[in-house]
Nucleic acid binder design. Sequence first.
DNA 1: CGACACCTTGAAGAGGTTCAAGAAATGTGG
DNA 2: CCACATTTCTTGAACCTCTTCAAGGTGTCG
Lengths: 241, 241
Amino acid sequence: MPATTFSPLKVNCSNCNLRDLCMPVEGDADDMDALAELISARRKFKRGDVLYSHGEPFTNLYAVRTGFFKTVVTTPDGREQVTGFHMAGEIVGLDGIVNDQHTCDAVALEDAEICVLPFSRMSDISRQVPALQTHVHKLMSREIVRDQNMMLLLGSMRAEERLAAFLLNLVQRLHVRGLSQSELVLRMTREEIGSYLGIKLETVSRMFSRFADEGILEVRQRHVHIIDPEALERIVNQQGA
Amino acid sequence: MPATTFSPLKVNCSNCNLRDLCMPVEGDADDMDALAELISARRKFKRGDVLYSHGEPFTNLYAVRTGFFKTVVTTPDGREQVTGFHMAGEIVGLDGIVNDQHTCDAVALEDAEICVLPFSRMSDISRQVPALQTHVHKLMSREIVRDQNMMLLLGSMRAEERLAAFLLNLVQRLHVRGLSQSELVLRMTREEIGSYLGIKLETVSRMFSRFADEGILEVRQRHVHIIDPEALERIVNQQGA
DNA sequence: CGACACCTTGAAGAGGTTCAAGAAATGTGG
DNA sequence: CCACATTTCTTGAACCTCTTCAAGGTGTCG
């Protein structure tokens, strides 16, 4: 149910406060004119709204402006895997490029707003503005590296290590955006965390309780206070074998 | 130990038999002239030779011409995860783009030959030849989709399902290259398969034995004969829950 | 042909899952 | 604004899959 709102007003990266995070591309006056055409619209989402779903034709990338999204891969037999959580300044939709259709679903985990980036337009501008070309390449490569790190996590870490790595990653990304290094509010359920980390929701809950018992965290539902980040680092970096 | 051999002779995609697989890019005469500059050299590798390793500066992508490579992510604490196996016509090195240095190791699993594709040259030509630009985008997107499917496998499948999916994927890729759909020779050890699939080498061995007992496979060391591919499909598609 | 790497198989053990029940939070309609 | 329904979270106990440890067998390469 894509209950969306269009904002046909001219929107532009150059005066956006997320620019450094999202579209850090410089150029001469001509280049900046070209870049001003990058965004076709903004759209608002409510919790649970679907940004795109698998099978849908691919035409746009999307930059998250506010709020939080998850991406989910689904198989015909009903298996689901959360493949990412996406926050302000991050770009989603790259999966759709290869076959001109999306291969996963993107769903808002809270009220959110995104910028629509028509990919054909982005490709056109990339040919005139090398800095944008480079940025697009790096975006995609970053996603590949991120996914390979998830493969490492899923392939070789124990539940405890997975949750510690997840929390450190989340809090680091939030900190870059000016939020606290120690306080965070989870936007997703235990089940979604578990799916992302390849463990069951009960295990997620147990690990939270264990960390709380050990004085590493304070957990009140979705509110998490990281008391001892070094302990989390130690848990992640300890050799599993 | 990169015991490599350079071939400074002019090499070119246009007369390569892997072209449809590797670089299916068309264009007018000018475009074809530009594309002829894509490859700077070919290099030969022996089993165990390293194509690139993590931390090394990124300058090139590499197209596998013959042979078999693995890519491996390594952590400071010594954990390893095989993130992919790569055969003729596939491109490796995309991980290096984002930070101008490689984040994984690429190692030859048998004698092999690759084409060197300097990435700056590739970017330059992409700006003139839209078909190449599109191809580069699709390459990277394909890798993202592939990695997300691995996350699904690692996050939600049981050992049996993982091995079945692995074998079907391998044999399908080999078949595209004109090889048998039912016979394959594994180029990697049980340990490398296990690392890739997030299970231990003993488990890989046990699953091979189980499939053999059930009449699905014949396994003689690295020689695998798939007797009943439908059974493998059923194993993969059965809901784990 | 001997050394080394690789593979198989068994037995015991650990980590995570499953099933179940209850508590806490959240949302909804009157 | 409150009562109720629903979703989400926590915790326990039994179970199961995979791992770990160990030993012996097979294949390969110098």
